[in-house]
Amino acid sequence: MSLVFVETDESGEVALTSAEALTFARTNADVLAGSVLEAAVIGTLTESAHNQLAVLGVDRIHHLESADLEAYSATAWAQALVDIAPETGTVLASGTPRGMELMAHVAVRTGERMAANVVAADEEGLLRQVLGGAAFERLQLGGDLQVLTLAGHACKPEETTPTTPEILTHSPESAAEDLRTRVVRTEVETDADNDTSGLTQARAVVGAGRGVGSENGFGEVLELVDHLGGALGVSRVVTGLGWRPHSEQVGQTGSRITPDVYIACGISGAIQHMAGIEGAKTLIAINTDEESTMVQRADYAIIGDLHEVVGAVNEEIRSRRG
């Protein structure tokens, strides 16, 4: 049996990353010992989420809702998952911060090992991302229960013949000790400096690296962002120099993005940055160095100074608009 921790967004829809994890569990059912697919939803279970879980092939939904689980506490939520986890098979979540944290607690509490950022499973074991995606580790967890998280974009969500999932409702009470680390309050961002949602949801992201030259060198790049109705993403060098806030950082320790197009301006393509853009559908590089990793990995490239090229691109868009 496979149990997947499902995250929902604010409107109650199943998160894309959780749909990926459910698809991974269903399509690898044989090697994960997960012929029955279960989903765990903590909090509100909307009709829409219920329908989404049906087309993703879920056999059984555990709906956990109680006063103790209302505010997030990793230990309370993890224990609630442990209480419904199978004895053999797999427990998994997508590799989001919540997913990582919960699975690590589940692993400790079930006495099992855990594999983070798994990308594939076969008879030889699991394959997972290491070094920010620059290499893969093959490993075997052993144990009766495999605990793992799925790397973002390792698997595309696929619908299947809709099931009629049985719903099991649970109202767990948590031990006082497990409520020590619950969220006291949440501050919804009014400060754009901390909001990464524009970046992770944008269809077009314009990336800027050291090549912009200074804190005041973002003019052309920001105009292009505006023409595309997109978002600005920057390399770690740029945030490290204090030119832009960390919320705009793309890469291993920033946001991982999945736009239709990523235009990398003056970014050489360090591994840590590439880790954040592997989900981009089309990659365009504007760089003076034809041999740079970014140009070599791009679908399209222009060799030249980013200020000159992006300035000309903006002008071309303006003139075509008429």
């Binding site: 140009v295 679908d299 399209y300 222009i302 030249g304 000159e308 090229v309 691109v313």
Partner: peptide, 15 residues
Amino acid sequence: VTILGEGPDAAGALV
């Protein structure tokens, strides 16, 4: 990689 060109002259191809 498809090189669209060099410098500002390649802007049209990128657009």
